[in-house]
Amino acid sequence: MTKGAGEFTVTCVACPVGCEVTVSDRGEVRGNRCDRGREYALLEHRDPRRILTSTVRTTCPDLPLLPVRTDRPIPKRLLFEAAKILATECISRPVKAGDVVVRDILGTGASAVATDDLF
């Protein structure tokens, strides 16, 4: 993902064009075709975040897994640790899509919410 000393390159996903945008170590942006690409690349460089989508086990035999998502993006580097937190959970009560399943994952302030109904 990095190119050269201190350079950072990312494929912009702000639109389908998919520019390869590079941020230099001095914060100069090149390769973008529009301002959205510039903003995207800078954010990806400074603090890349992602919505985590995963599942949580349930005690319901017909639906052994409940799909969940974080209610806000979390730092990219925490995705795997957050998935491990969710892996320890097991739901044994009725849940509606949108209900919070796990609060404040890894101190990020983000909660995992159900994306489907259970039971």
Partner: peptide
């Protein structure tokens, strides 16, 4: 092992 897994938090 799962049978003794901790119950849900949340």
């Amino acid at each position: 092992g799962f049978r003794t897994a901790p119950a849900a938090r949340g």
